[in-house]
Design a protein around this nucleic acid. Structure first.
Lengths: 190, 190
DNA sequence: TTCGTCATGTAATGGGTTACATGATTAC
DNA sequence: GTAATCATGTAACCCATTACATGACGAA
């Protein structure tokens, strides 16, 4: 999850950890936030896996002295070739995991770099998942409505409306994607 | 989290694990789901803590034979006196944790058993939290709008609208609560 | 010179999930 | 008699969080 997000952001430009986290917030908005406590270890693991590498090719090394003093400066990371491959690979696999709450936002955030058919599959999968959930809540609500207190009821109904809203949003997006694929395959409609 | 939910459900009536999970789904709706893998260990811990106990007083023991065969039947749990206290205690503490995404739904689900002032505090805390988040996204969006691709933008805006919707919902609830406290303290407006 | 924020990192912990294993009960 | 679903539980793991520790750098 964090991994995909990091790959996606570094795909655009090299960044250091701190900056990466700001971008993460800016990109995922209200969907997800990550702490440094998970970011840095992830960065280390990804480096060990060979997907990212320290980027030495930036203007940080100006004076000769700092290098000798062994001071700890910014650590700028960039994608490696394997990292790029891994990113494409992760983007392509539109499995059930991609339409769960936590993953969907991250996948969607990188739709501009995702193949049109994959986009549609993920959107449809997500919609189906939500409709399923909605039906579950609806029927359970129908069975137990009178037994629930008004607060619980409020909660259910607000939840139901939220799901409805997202389903409508997804439907619009799917429509747009479909039209775009028909008229002009492999481009972004938005 | 799960603990509070379990206490809340058992506060109404004794239940066994499996049933508890169904109720959990019915009560929390689309907000949260728990697996048996977390429910049963939680039940064990809660029993060890003395908040719940096995309820022997139900109609399960009809024939004499089953007891001898040592068969594993339903394990019905009920709240102990300490459990009731613990529940009240948890409901009363309206700390910052109560207005985070994961906790809020659970707290809200038991609002009918929560003191009116606590209800208002939690609703206001939640609203403030969301407004804060909304402002964060809004300003970051204002700064970076042109640098974002259209999908990321869509995601941000949909997120923003969702937050807006919840804020409005909360405002209505707060209004209702306030009127109710003024006119008829310590009752439920809904 | 001290405060804020930029910047990197670790250790302990938390709170869950998935997959698995097992068996009773009900409906067909 | 067999399939579904009710029912309980464990073990391995995952993915993050909080709290903490450290230090550079710029602005007041």
């Amino acid at each position: 999850m964090l991994e995909l997000a990091v790959l996606g952001l570094l795909h655009e430009s090299p960044l250091h950890g701190y900056e990466l986290r700001q971008r993460l917030k800016a990109t995922l908005g209200s969907f997800r936030a990550f702490s440094y406590g998970s970011l840095y270890p992830t960065l280390r693991r990804m480096k060990e896996s060979g997907w990212i590498a320290e980027d030495e090719g930036d203007a940080e090394v100006v004076a000769g002295a700092p290098a000798l003093t062994g001071k700890r400066g910014k650590v700028v990371y960039k994608l490696t070739a394997e990292g790029k491959e891994r990113f494409t690979e992760l983007l392509a696999e539109a499995g059930p995991a991609s339409w769960e709450d936590e993953q969907f936002g991250v996948h969607f955030a990188f739709f501009a770099k995702t193949a049109p058919e994959v986009r549609v599959r993920i959107l449809e999968g997500r919609r189906a998942r939500l409709e399923e959930r909605r039906e579950g809540v609806r029927t359970s609500l129908a069975r137990t409505r009178e037994r629930l207190d008004s607060y619980t009821l409020q909660l259910q109904e607000h939840g139901l409306e939220s799901v409805d809203r997202e389903v409508r949003w997804l439907s619009e997006l799917i429509e747009t994607e479909r039209n775009s694929i028909r008229s002009n395959p492999s481009t972004n409609p938005l």
